[in-house]
């Protein structure tokens, strides 16, 4: 039974990497990346999907290779605004996009016009998918998503505050903000569509990321009780190193389940899954390099206030 014993370890048990040495560099690097991401989110901006931008999206399968030029001019002549026509997956599948029309009624009329045009330009074409989202709905979905994201951050902060001291909550939420902005930057760079599914990915990452932080924080709290005199800096390093195998292990299992989704999950899930993959890597590294070191800035003295051994002066004053 050779399988009964572990065959490998991600990192050796006696690993003692001085993470705190690089904390300023790490945090500075992270802030720069996040600022860049925010800039990218506005210029060139995110590729908003139909959920958030509204409009019409149709996936069409033509009999035989599609004549993109004919389709483009056919739909362009309808005067429905700038039409996007692109190959999708294979040569006989085409993705059509139209901007949002005046109101919902106009959007529905436009859908019918495009159908009629398709019938003319490419007889025998079949509609695989039609999505038509009115501008009011897309606005609502967009604000709803932002609210959900904000709400989840607040809920996480409240939870950690409740379970730990406030320094942990602030540390986690700042890290979370840095991470989420990087995911947004990733979306901007890769031109992955920002849609409801991507928001689902971001929210999932937030959940997992806080989970990661909680484990490290949990260990720090335990160590704070155990080693009453150890300097905080050393204690944080110790806690990170002790939980390193777990942090990396969980990330690996998550990556191993997210990667197949990205590779084989099809076009609909690819954006979601790649966002997850990026988010997992970002959140794991920030758990190690940002979240825990951040506590050193926030809690140099305060986290020790209860457990700190009384100073000689205080002892003298109390007359013991």
């Amino acid at each position: 039974m050779f399988l009964a014993r572990p065959l490998f370890r991600l990192v050796r048990d006696d690993t003692a990497i001085p993470f705190m040495k690089g904390r300023k560099l790490g945090i500075a690097f992270s802030i720069i990346l996040s600022v860049l991401s925010v800039v990218l989110a506005f210029y060139p901006g995110l590729e908003k999907g139909i959920d958030f931008r509204g409009g019409i999206l149709m996936e069409v399968r033509t009999s035989g290779p599609a004549d993109l030029g004919a389709l483009r001019s056919g739909i362009g002549s309808l005067g429905l605004g700038e039409a996007g026509v692109q190959e999708f997956g294979d040569a006989s599948t085409v993705l059509l996009r139209l901007p949002v029309q005046g109101d919902e009624g106009a959007t529905q009329t436009a859908v019918n016009q495009v159908r009629a045009t398709l019938e003319q330009v490419s007889p025998g074409a079949r509609l695989l998918r039609t999505e038509a989202v009115g501008n009011r709905i897309s606005d609502e979905l967009f604000t709803g998503s932002l609210i959900a994201l904000g709400l989840s951050m607040l809920a996480m902060m409240a939870y950690i505050w409740f379970r730990f001291e406030w320094q942990f909550a602030v540390g986690a939420i700042v890290t979370l903000l840095l991470e989420t902005t990087k995911v947004v930057g990733f979306l901007a760079v890769t031109r992955i569509e920002f849609s409801l599914t991507t928001v689902a990915a971001v929210l999932t990452i937030i959940g997992f990321s806080v989970n990661d932080k909680v484990v490290v924080y949990d260990r720090m709290r335990e160590n704070l009780r155990k080693y009453k005199t150890m300097p905080l800096r050393q204690l944080i390093d110790k806690s990170i190193n002790e939980t390193l195998n777990r942090t990396l292990g969980t990330s690996v299992t998550l990556l191993l389940s997210a990667l197949p989704l990205a590779l084989f999950g099809g076009d609909t899930l690819a954006g979601f899954a790649w966002t997850m993959v990026f988010g997992i890597v970002a959140s794991t590294s920030s758990s190690i390099f940002i979240a825990a070191p951040m506590l050193l800035f926030l809690g140099e003295n305060r986290l020790r206030r209860v457990t700190e051994a009384p100073s000689p002066a205080a002892r003298a004053a109390s007359g013991t």
Partner: peptide, 25 residues
Amino acid sequence: GTIMDSNLTNLIAMACLYALGSGPV
């Protein structure tokens, strides 16, 4: 204890997502 903490964070995130609520998501 750690397991409880870390799973609750996942559940909070999913509750927010559910509240955002549109079919597939």
